[in-house]
Simulated scan of single mutants.
Amino acid sequence: MGRSKEFDPDAALQSALELFWRRGYEATSMADLVDRLGIGRASIYATFGSKHELYLRALDRYNENRDPGLLRELSQPGPALPAVRAVLRRFAAEAGADDRRREGCFVVNTAAELAAHDPAAARRVEASWSHIETLLHSSLVRARAQGELPPDRDPRTLARMLLVLMQGLRVVGKASDDSGRVRDAAEQALKLLD
Rank of each mutant, 00 (worst) to 15 (best):
Ala80Leu: 12
Leu17Thr: 07
Ser75Trp: 03
Arg102Phe: 10
Leu13Asn: 02
Tyr55Gly: 00
Ser50Val: 08
Leu33Cys: 12
Glu126Val: 11
Tyr25Asn: 08
Val171Glu: 06
Ile39Leu: 05
Ala159Ile: 10
Arg90His: 13
Glu53Val: 02
Ala27Cys: 06
Cys105Thr: 10
Met1Cys: 11
Leu19Cys: 09
His137Gly: 09
Ser29Met: 12
Leu70Arg: 04
Met1Thr: 12
Tyr45Ala: 00
Arg170Ser: 10
Arg101Cys: 01
Asp194Glu: 15
Leu59Arg: 00
Leu74Ser: 05
Gly180Thr: 07
Thr134Leu: 14
Arg102Gly: 11
Ala175Trp: 12
Glu64Phe: 05
Asp10Glu: 15
Gly38Ala: 11
Arg72Glu: 15
Phe91Val: 15
Ala46Met: 06
Leu71Ile: 08
Leu74Met: 08
Val141Tyr: 03
Val171Pro: 00
Ala58Asp: 00
Lys5Phe: 03
Arg72Val: 15
Leu158Ser: 02
Gly168Arg: 07
Ser130Trp: 07
Ala58Glu: 01
Arg89Pro: 03
Gly69Trp: 06
Ala111Asp: 05
Arg22Phe: 11
Ala86Gln: 14
Leu71Thr: 12
Glu73Ser: 03
Leu136Glu: 03
Ser138Glu: 13
Pro155Thr: 10
Gln14Tyr: 07
Glu73Val: 03
Ala93Thr: 11
Leu88Met: 01
Val87Phe: 07
Ala175Phe: 14
Gly49Arg: 00
Gly96Phe: 09
Leu162His: 02
Tyr25Gln: 11
Gly78Arg: 04
Ser130Tyr: 05
Glu73Trp: 03
Leu190Ala: 10
Pro82Lys: 05
Gln188Leu: 15
Ala27Gln: 15
Ala12Tyr: 01
Leu17His: 07
Asp99Tyr: 13
His137Glu: 15
Arg156Lys: 10
Asp60Leu: 04
Glu187Leu: 13
Pro150Asp: 14
Asn63Arg: 13
Glu187Gly: 12
Arg90Val: 07
Thr134Trp: 08
Glu126His: 08
Val108Ile: 09
Val172Phe: 05
Asp67Thr: 14
Phe7Leu: 05
Arg36Val: 15
Gly96Thr: 09
Arg153Cys: 12
Arg57Pro: 00
Leu158Ile: 06
Phe20Asp: 01
Leu190Glu: 07
Asp8Gly: 01
Arg123Tyr: 05
Leu13Phe: 03
Asn109Glu: 15
Arg66Lys: 08
Ala95Gln: 01
Gly2Leu: 11
Phe48Val: 01
Pro155His: 10
Lys174Ile: 04
Glu6Ile: 08
Thr157Ile: 14
Arg22Ile: 10
Leu163Pro: 04
Arg153Asn: 05
Ala58Phe: 00
Ile44His: 02
Gly78Tyr: 04
Arg183Ser: 13
Val107Asn: 04
Ala122Pro: 02
Ala127Leu: 10
Ala80Phe: 08
Ala186Ile: 13
Leu193Phe: 00
Leu149Phe: 13
Glu26Asp: 11
Pro9Gln: 05
Asp32Lys: 07
Arg61Ser: 09
Leu19Thr: 13
Ala120Phe: 01
Arg102Trp: 13
Leu74Glu: 03
Arg66Glu: 04
Leu163Gln: 11
Asp154Val: 02
Ala31His: 10
